[in-house]
């Protein structure tokens, strides 16, 4: 895949974010294509999470533009952007069943979906994530891996235009991380929704990526396929991020 992205879903142009005097994103450009899975790699504090927050509308840039599906969304509130964010610390509503947790985003005011549609969507998401058997279990009785599946499912039911993942597997056991990584890879082929996925796990990055974007110094230092980033890292720091020291 080349840098010229076919039918872009998300275009960031010259995005700048500063916290006080500290520049976190310094004129960052990024284009993400339809159906693409883009991995964002970067050292701790490189601004990976800030980048996701800016796309989601939780952080307003001081300069630059964020366009989603061709519409300028730079100043649009999160609710209008139709993106879903899955965090590292998955939080479900305890005391609620998995079904109710999954249905919650669909019952948001202004969504006016019929119960049948909600039911159908919840079942669909549960089947994709292999949690059909858990639908009536209270959320607090799930294992860590099951909880993270439900958290992903909660993002899934909305069928958002873009998926944002912030190290979703980091808090899981190594073995579970491996299994969910494979499931995510299979899942995303069925979905056809673009994903931006932040991680510091090189196995995850290499295995999942259509393209890898390396974030350093507030800009994209390198972007390209797993193979090209692995084989020709532009700096020693990029090589180190991929575990090639």
């Amino acid at each position: 895949m080349s840098d010229a992205v076919q039918s872009p879903v998300l275009v960031l142009g010259g995005v700048r974010v500063e916290f006080g005097r500290k520049s976190v994103l310094a004129g960052l450009d990024l284009t993400v294509g339809a159906n693409e899975l883009l991995i964002v790699l970067g050292a701790t504090g490189a601004g990976k999470t800030t980048l996701l927050r800016t796309i989601a509308g939780l952080q307003t840039p001081i300069a630059g533009t964020v366009a989603i599906a061709g519409v300028d969304m730079t100043h649009a509130p999160p609710g209008l952007r139709d993106v879903a964010l899955v965090f590292q610390n998955f939080s479900l509503y305890p005391g609620w069943s998995v079904r109710r947790n999954l249905a919650f985003p669909l019952r948001a005011p202004g969504r006016q979906l019929s119960d049948d549609v909600i039911d159908e969507r919840v079942t669909w998401a549960a089947r994709l994530l292999h949690i059909e058997g858990l639908l009536d279990k209270p959320a607090e009785r799930l294992s860590g891996g099951q909880m993270q599946r439900v958290a992903i499912g909660r993002a899934l039911v909305r069928r958002p235009r873009i998926f944002l993942f912030d190290e979703p597997l980091t808090n899981l056991d190594a073995k579970l991380r491996e299994e969910l990584r494979v499931e995510l890879a299979l899942l995303r082929r069925q979905l056809g929704i673009p994903m931006i996925y932040v991680t510091h796990d090189r196995s995850e990055a290499l295995a999942l990526a259509d393209r890898i974007a390396v974030l350093a110094g507030g800009v994209i230092a390198q972007i390209g396929s797993s193979e090209s980033v692995w084989n020709t890292p532009v700096t020693a720091a990029v090589a180190a991020l991929l575990g090639r020291s």
Partner: peptide, 11 residues
């Protein structure tokens, strides 16, 4: 069903 690139090998 799935080809996972891992840099020095594939799964």
């Amino acid at each position: 069903v799935l080809d996972e690139y891992q840099g020095d090998h594939r799964l």
